[in-house]
Amino acid sequence: MFKGMIHKNTAFFLAALFVVFLFLPKIIPSYYVYFIASVLVMALLAMSLNLVVGFGGLFQFHHGVFYGVGAYAIALLVKKTPIPEWICFILSPFVAALAGLIIGLICIRLSKLYFAMIQISLGSLLWALAFRWYGFTGGDDGIHGIPMPSMISGVNNSYYFILIVFVVCIVALFMILKSPFGSTLQAARDNEQRCEAIGVFVKRHQLFAIVIASFFAGIAGVLFVVLERSVFPDLLFWTLSLEILIMCLLGGWFTFAGPIIGAAIMLSLRTFIGIQTEYWTLILAVILALLIFFLPEGVWGYFQEKLKHRKEAVTERGQ
């Protein structure tokens, strides 16, 4: 199935990495286990965004909404309905995907900045609803103490659950990107007119990408609830969406693994520098500004470029 998709060495390295991650809770204190779990959640969210922004070339400026919808969906389904928890887990990402379909259908007619703006206004609508509808969503207090199945409660158990879901999701995302659909999406990003000229229904592909991305964002939202057991309107606020965009930028837009690096950098800054000083956002912002000035491809993108050059140099010398 994966033949030809990734290099043998890479596959071996990733398998080893997975094993290391499996044994991490045995070695490191549970605070760090919790930290890694939250990085994985954010990384999944950022990767789902990168599918639309990096590979689809769309101005998805309010991706956080789908994350928030997924989180609120699981919270409300578990708290307010008698549906068994495991079914709620499966339903919630689909609720997020439905939100993605509706918002996508409205946005997709527009392009660039207008696309971004109508998405932000729709997202803000949902944020304002969650913020004010005290009877249903708990208003600005949010919902706390959401019951989770005992199998995945506790830091270590939720870590394993998040890790496994994360791995399944990135494999799925990888295959989507390598599929004909993924290639078409990237082609449409690079030249929309030409794509349309050869008979590709560009808008339909882009809409489909939005739905897929919001599905995975919904999964990330569910994982957030598994980890934190609470939801609040900030999940739907636009600053979170910009933060995810920053993660993609930090890691690198056009790379598959970039957003993981970006999420790790951002959360490390927040967690470890946040303890030292309340001005951690200042440090983040300065790093970000320097990055935009000097490394617009992102950290991972930069190294990938370097590696490529070196490999090319080596093969040239070989010949």
């Binding site: 965009l245 920053i246 200042l282 912002a285 935009i292």
Partner: peptide
């Protein structure tokens, strides 16, 4: 630069101004 970069750059400025 493209709009997305400018937007993120001004967002960085927003964070800097906020902390200042």
């Amino acid at each position: 630069r493209e709009h997305l970069m400018l937007l993120l750059f001004t967002f960085a400025l927003m964070l800097i101004f906020g902390d200042l």
